Amino acid sequence: TTQFTVHSPEQAEQWKEYAKQKGLEVHVQKKNGTWHVTIH
């Protein structure tokens, strides 16, 4: 599991796309103005 924080919805979307291409599961949670992205 990879977990990191991004600071814009655009970055979060890019990671979603990346994960989809790799066939991975991605979870994005918005918290205090940042987005926590978890890739399984």
Rank of each mutant, 00 (worst) to 15 (best):
T1A: 09
T1I: 13
T1H: 10
T1E: 11
T1W: 14
T1Q: 09
T1C: 15
T1F: 14
T1S: 11
T1N: 09
T2V: 15
T2K: 13
T2P: 05
T2C: 15
T2Y: 15
T2D: 07
T2R: 14
Q3A: 09
Q3L: 06
Q3W: 13
Q3P: 03
Q3R: 13
Q3D: 08
Q3I: 11
Q3Y: 13
Q3T: 13
Q3H: 15
F4R: 04
F4G: 03
F4N: 03
F4C: 12
F4P: 02
T5H: 12
T5V: 14
T5F: 12
T5Q: 11
T5P: 06
T5G: 04
T5C: 15
T5K: 07
V6P: 02
V6L: 04
V6G: 02
V6E: 03
V6W: 02
V6S: 03
V6M: 02
V6T: 06
V6A: 05
V6F: 05
H7V: 08
H7G: 12
H7L: 10
H7F: 12
H7A: 13
H7T: 13
H7Q: 11
H7R: 06
S8G: 07
S8L: 06
S8K: 03
S8D: 07
S8F: 07
S8C: 11
S8V: 04
S8T: 14
S8H: 05
S8W: 06
S8I: 04
S8M: 04
S8R: 03
P9L: 15
P9R: 15
P9N: 11
P9V: 14
P9E: 15
P9K: 15
P9S: 14
P9Y: 15
P9F: 15
P9D: 12
P9C: 14
P9M: 15
P9T: 09
P9H: 15
P9G: 11
P9I: 15
E10K: 06
E10F: 07
E10Q: 09
E10V: 07
E10I: 06
E10T: 06
E10H: 07
E10D: 08
Q11T: 06
Q11A: 14
Q11G: 05
Q11I: 13
Q11H: 09
Q11F: 05
Q11C: 14
A12R: 02
A12C: 06
A12T: 03
A12E: 02
A12N: 01
A12K: 02
A12Y: 05
A12D: 01
A12V: 14
A12F: 05
A12S: 03
E13G: 04
E13L: 08
E13M: 09
E13D: 10
E13S: 06
E13N: 10
E13H: 07
Q14M: 14
Q14Y: 15
Q14T: 07
Q14R: 12
Q14I: 12
Q14G: 07
Q14L: 13
Q14A: 14
Q14E: 11
Q14K: 13
W15S: 01
W15L: 09
W15K: 01
W15A: 04
W15C: 07
W15D: 01
W15H: 02
W15Q: 01
W15E: 02
W15I: 10
W15G: 00
W15M: 05
K16F: 10
K16G: 04
K16E: 10
K16I: 15
K16Q: 10
K16P: 01
K16C: 13
K16M: 12
K16V: 15
K16Y: 12
E17W: 07
E17P: 00
E17H: 06
E17I: 09
E17T: 07
E17Y: 06
E17R: 07
E17G: 03
E17K: 09
E17D: 10
E17Q: 11
E17N: 07
Y18K: 04
Y18A: 04
Y18L: 06
Y18G: 02
Y18E: 03
Y18P: 01
Y18M: 05
Y18R: 04
A19F: 09
A19Y: 10
A19G: 13
A19E: 02
A19P: 01
A19N: 01
A19Q: 01
A19D: 01
A19S: 03
A19K: 01
A19L: 07
A19H: 02
K20N: 08
K20T: 08
K20L: 11
K20Q: 11
K20D: 05
K20S: 08
K20M: 10
K20C: 06
K20F: 08
Q21Y: 08
Q21I: 12
Q21E: 11
Q21T: 10
Q21D: 09
Q21G: 09
Q21V: 10
Q21S: 13
K22T: 08
K22R: 14
K22M: 14
K22W: 12
K22A: 12
K22G: 05
K22Q: 12
G23E: 03
G23V: 02
G23Q: 04
G23Y: 03
G23A: 04
G23I: 02
G23T: 02
G23M: 04
G23R: 04
G23S: 04
G23L: 03
G23N: 07
G23D: 04
L24G: 02
L24N: 02
L24M: 08
L24Q: 03
L24H: 04
E25Q: 12
E25S: 11
E25M: 12
E25C: 13
E25I: 14
E25Y: 13
E25D: 11
E25H: 13
E25G: 08
V26N: 00
V26I: 15
V26R: 00
V26T: 02
V26K: 00
V26S: 04
V26L: 06
V26E: 00
V26A: 07
V26F: 12
V26W: 05
V26Y: 09
H27A: 05
H27Q: 07
H27S: 10
H27M: 08
H27N: 07
H27V: 10
H27R: 07
H27P: 00
H27E: 09
H27T: 13
V28Y: 03
V28S: 01
V28F: 08
V28M: 04
V28N: 00
V28C: 00
V28L: 06
Q29E: 14
Q29N: 08
Q29F: 09
Q29R: 11
Q29S: 11
Q29M: 10
Q29I: 15
Q29G: 05
Q29A: 10
Q29V: 14
K30R: 10
K30H: 13
K30N: 12
K30L: 14
K30W: 12
K30D: 07
K30F: 15
K30Y: 15
K30C: 10
K30A: 11
K31Y: 11
K31V: 14
K31G: 10
K31A: 08
K31S: 11
K31N: 11
K31M: 13
K31E: 11
K31D: 09
K31H: 11
K31P: 00
K31L: 13
K31F: 11
N32C: 12
N32L: 05
N32D: 12
N32P: 02
N32W: 03
N32Q: 06
N32I: 02
N32M: 04
N32E: 09
G33V: 02
G33M: 04
G33P: 01
G33D: 11
G33R: 04
G33W: 03
G33F: 04
T34K: 14
T34D: 10
T34R: 12
T34L: 14
T34Y: 14
T34G: 12
T34I: 15
T34V: 15
T34F: 13
W35E: 01
W35P: 01
W35K: 01
W35M: 03
W35T: 02
W35A: 01
H36Y: 15
H36P: 01
H36R: 09
H36V: 15
H36Q: 14
H36C: 14
H36I: 15
H36S: 08
H36F: 14
H36K: 07
H36G: 04
V37Q: 00
V37T: 00
V37S: 00
V37D: 00
V37E: 01
V37K: 00
V37G: 01
V37C: 00
T38Y: 07
T38M: 08
T38W: 08
T38Q: 05
T38S: 06
T38P: 00
T38G: 01
T38D: 03
T38V: 10
T38N: 03
I39Q: 00
I39W: 02
I39Y: 01
I39S: 00
I39G: 00
I39M: 06
H40C: 11
H40L: 12
H40S: 12
H40W: 14
H40D: 05
H40Y: 13
H40G: 10
H40R: 10
H40A: 09
